[in-house]
Design a binder for these strands. Structure first.
Lengths: 197, 197
DNA sequence: GTCTATATTTAGATAGAC
DNA sequence: GTCTATCTAAATATAGAC
């Protein structure tokens, strides 16, 4: 069974892209407005799908949110995979920080896509908060591998420190609507990485 | 006009504590469940006030949320004021990190009270997100004063780094339900403060 | 298999009783 | 001044038409 670039196909092949459009619209709106404030009607409208029709593709709103999280997960995996072109682990870690800095305008507007999702869904204790945990684990595990490859025994702690530093800076940049705050913290993290043996 | 320990009095003095109970219940529930998932009926129930009666004290839900944020603000101010007993700025900063670490169980369960509020309300652009900004500014300004007193020219950046580090660690600790993660990052921040000249 | 009209629920808010 | 019964609106979800 082939998997298309648009993700899992709809129940049949008759509605090309509709399911994918719903997932994309949901991902965007959940990020911009938060999960609770986003209605299925809004998602349907942005995806250009008749309202109410959403339930043909997703049994519940949570199911749609879960699909949006899975899509974010693919985005993160793709971004991390793209960093592998750099030759040294230190260069790869710096490149990750670059990715953070480059997204500063968007982050100042709506926060970190993964971080704000975790913050909202962590209040619950269900499969959605679990999915968020997996999402957040990805960059930490990736960074941990890089630090380990540098020979650092404290790779797990360093990875947590790096991602925590970014997440905190993203929250503050969003709170103060200040992309420069994120850029400044990014620079700090770069210097910190450079200083590691 | 005297201000009681319970905060601003109700429109009259006839309903002693009811308004304060509503604010306290709202503060707790907004923290535990998030703003959007908390209903006025739940707040009323926890405050032991008849449902629907909330509107006698607060014209809208946003008004109640705003009062809860103001109450959080007082909590933060009180905590920061309590740190002034320490004699040196470095000791005061370390004491702040201690406060973070001591709250690790609660943070692992429901996140940082200020951070999760900011994360959710920053998606909006209204007086509530503004109030969150003020809330988050408090510890940063306080830390900045300590670093400045230590003679650091880069006090603003250091203050942002400290609070960002905590906020990020709080988010991860909540996401992974791991108080030890926060304790570990707290230790890191303590060592970082100690290493500053 | 695909989609729409409608039902159900529940939130926030208010008019008016006490 | 204080509180309650009720309204309105809007969200999620479903039965059933096409």
């Amino acid at each position: 069974m082939a998997k298309t670039a648009q993700g899992a196909a709809a129940p049949t092949d008759r509605a090309p892209g509709k399911r994918a459009r719903l997932v994309q619209a949901a991902k965007d709106l959940l990020y911009e407005q938060g999960v609770e404030r986003t209605t299925l009607a809004e998602v349907a409208a942005r995806a250009d799908v008749p309202p109410g029709n959403v339930y043909y593709y997703f049994k519940t709103k949570d199911d749609l949110v879960e699909a949006a999280i899975a899509s974010q997960r693919e985005d993160v995996e793709s971004t991390l995979a793209g960093l592998e072109t750099h030759r040294t682990p230190k260069a790869r870690l710096r490149a990750l920080v670059r990715v953070f800095i480059d997204a500063r305008e968007q982050v100042a507007r709506s926060g970190c896509p993964q971080g704000s999702l975790c913050s909202e869904l962590d209040k619950r204790a269900d499969r959605l908060s679990d999915a968020c945990g997996e999402l957040m684990r990805l960059p930490i595990s990736w960074a941990e591998r890089q630090f380990a490859e540098m020979g650092r025994r404290d790779a797990p702690e360093l990875a947590v420190a790096l991602i925590a530093g970014y997440q905190g800076a993203a929250l503050l940049a969003n709170t103060f609507r200040d992309p420069d705050l994120l850029a400044g913290e990014g620079k700090r993290l770069e210097r910190w990485i450079d200083g590691l043996s």
